[in-house]
Amino acid sequence: MSNVFEQLRLYSNKLVQSGLVVGAGGNLSMRDGGFMYISPSGFDLQEIETEHWVKVNIETGEVLSDLKPSSEILMHLECFRRRPDINSVLHAHPSYSVGVSSAGKDIPNMFPDFPAMVKKVAYLDYVIPTTNVLADKVAAVIDDADVVVMRNHGVMTVGKSMKEAYFFMQLTEEAAKVFTIASTVGTPRLLSEDECQDLRNLAAEKFRSKLLKDS
């Protein structure tokens, strides 16, 4: 139990300090048996204390705390319900990822780490946040994607550990940043699907991926 709160606090701070969220934006959650702990609504992520995390029954959606959960609670619940293999969900508003996707572009593979570690990115056209409409759209793609980019909104990542979900968020934002920079100075050279598959088959990348899942 204490490890859940330690991880939530650590990565709440990381999200803010790395500029992936601003103010009270963004939310995160972790599975704890049949329950999840999710960030409370309206809190700056750096100001959340142990007693503030909101306990929710994953199966029923019943809120078991006095504080109001993040307005994106439905999206988090759908992830845990559909993916028993994951234990962590992050939602942030990374600038380059939002910028690239809102221009109607997908975030391409331009450097080894991104395709080697992130197997699939799903893209959703804009729908109003915090609603069951968005949660349903996430549910429709989350079965085989660890990164969901929501155009004009943000990015959601899931992982077997919070460290893995955070790394996916970092990689996605870095890929969007590299693409943006390359596009300002010339025509970006993208990695081919064959090149991406070769990277995924590297023993070193498989080992690194296992370390993230076990963290």
Rank of each mutant, 00 (worst) to 15 (best):
P40Y: 02
Y96F: 15
I58D: 01
Y96V: 01
E49I: 10
H91W: 00
S88A: 15
S70H: 04
V89Q: 10
W53F: 15
E47G: 06
V89R: 03
P69H: 04
R81L: 06
I107T: 11
N87E: 14
G99A: 13
V89Y: 00
C79H: 02
S65D: 10
T60I: 05
A103V: 11
G42P: 08
I73K: 05
K105E: 15
M75L: 12
S102T: 11
L64T: 08
M75Y: 04
E47D: 15
H52G: 03
D66K: 14
I107G: 02
V56K: 05
W53A: 05
V54D: 03
E59C: 10
S65K: 01
L77N: 01
C79K: 00
N57I: 03
F43P: 01
F43W: 07
V100G: 04
D44K: 14
S95I: 14
G104E: 07
K55M: 09
P94Y: 03
V89L: 04
L77T: 07
V89A: 13
I58S: 13
I107Q: 08
G104Q: 09
G104A: 14
T50G: 03
D44I: 06
R83H: 11
S65I: 00
H76W: 02
T50W: 13
E51M: 09
G61M: 06
H93E: 15
G42T: 11
L45S: 07
V100H: 00
V56R: 01
I48N: 00
E72M: 00
A103H: 08
S65L: 00
F80G: 03
D66S: 13
F43D: 11
S95C: 11
S70T: 14
T50K: 12
I73F: 03
R82I: 10
K68W: 01
E49Q: 15
P94A: 12
W53P: 06
R83D: 01
P94Q: 10
V56E: 01
K105V: 09
S97V: 02
R83L: 05
S95N: 11
K55V: 11
D85Y: 09
E49K: 15
T60C: 06
D106L: 14
V54H: 07
S102A: 13
S95H: 09
I107A: 08
I86R: 07
E59M: 10
E49C: 14
D66L: 02
E47Y: 00
G99I: 12
D85W: 13
S71G: 04
Q46T: 14
S102P: 08
S95A: 13
V89I: 12
E59Y: 02
I107S: 10
K55H: 14
E49F: 12
P84E: 07
G61W: 01
Q46S: 15
K105I: 05
H52I: 09
G42M: 06
S88V: 11
V54S: 06
V54Q: 07
S39Q: 00
S65A: 11
R82K: 15
N87H: 06
L90Q: 02
